[in-house]
């Protein structure tokens, strides 16, 4: 999940989520960066509205719990 956290961190800071930025953040944490994973993450985030995805987090939990009750 560290790649995802790095992306959210950058997003929070209002920075562009690029391969270089992700790499810099992870390396600062002492993590050896896998270039392909950084690339894949950046590619996957293309066109994604992060704010929207995050907003869903709040909803997801209750829905999951409610489901078995159905």
């Amino acid at each position: 999940m560290e790649y995802i956290y790095a992306a959210l961190l950058l997003h929070n800071a209002g920075k562009a989520i690029t391969e270089e930025a992700i790499t810099a953040v992870l390396q600062a944490a002492g993590i050896e960066v896998n270039e392909a994973r950084a690339k894949a993450l950046v590619a996957a985030l293309e066109g994604v509205d992060i704010e929207e995805a995050i907003a869903k987090a709040a909803f997801a939990a209750p829905a999951a719990a409610a489901a078995p009750a159905a």
Partner: peptide, 21 residues
Amino acid sequence: TAYPTGATIGTLLAKAYAESK
């Protein structure tokens, strides 16, 4: 495995956010 795909990137972001919160 935090391997992002178009179908799961939203969930991964939401998961990271929810865990952080």
